Amino acid sequence: MQNIVILAGNLGADPESRTTQGGTNITSIRLATSRPRYKDGKIVRDEQGRRVQDTEWHRITCFNGLGKTVQEHCTSGMKLLVRGRIHYTKWTDQQGNDRYGCEIIAETVDFLSRGKPAQKDEGYTGNYNDLDDDIPF
């Protein structure tokens, strides 16, 4: 049996990164996925005739090199495809209550829309949107 998750959605905020005392880079993102709402087997529509969507938010954790890539290239609103596994956690809060959480541990992240532009190199004054136009084939 395998624990496999595949999610395609929009990044809800810019990635947040931290480094553990042991040197592990951890990057966290929030991904929104949507699906149409159904009632009596039919898609629910609003007053303007548009489909009503139910949105779910997923906590995604990326480690080390993958986390660094996500931090460098992703920004709020981007479309991403995340492949990974579900990870459940349990902890005790300050009041002694058991708390539970669920996150997705990312194994791969594919960019379905353009990411942030690369950092500007010293001395380059051209347009970063067309850097590959001059590559001969």
Results as ranks from 00 to 15, higher is better:
F111T: 00
R51I: 08
H58C: 04
L66Y: 07
F63S: 00
C102L: 13
I86D: 03
E16F: 02
E16G: 03
V82H: 05
F111H: 02
D121P: 14
Q53Y: 11
D93I: 01
G22V: 10
Y128G: 13
G67L: 00
K39V: 13
N129T: 14
V82A: 00
Q95P: 01
L11P: 04
F111M: 15
C102G: 05
G84T: 05
K42H: 09
L31N: 07
N127F: 01
S17L: 02
I60S: 03
D93C: 02
K116E: 12
V44F: 02
D98P: 03
G9Y: 00
Y128K: 10
R45D: 02
F111V: 00
D110Q: 15
S113Y: 10
K39Q: 13
N64T: 02
Y38G: 03
L81D: 01
N25H: 12
S113Q: 08
S113C: 12
Y100V: 06
G49H: 13
A8S: 14
I86L: 15
T19N: 07
E16N: 06
A32M: 07
N3W: 05
D40I: 01
R83E: 15
R37L: 15
I43E: 15
G9A: 04
Y128C: 14
Q119T: 12
A106M: 07
D110F: 05
G22F: 07
G123S: 09
D54G: 07
E16R: 15
D93N: 13
L7E: 09
R35Q: 13
G101V: 07
Q21H: 07
W91C: 06
I4P: 05
S34K: 14
G12N: 06
T61S: 11
G41H: 14
T20W: 08
A13T: 08
V5Y: 04
L66G: 06
P36F: 06
E47A: 11
K79N: 11
G9P: 13
E56G: 06
L81G: 12
E16P: 04
T33D: 03
G123H: 04
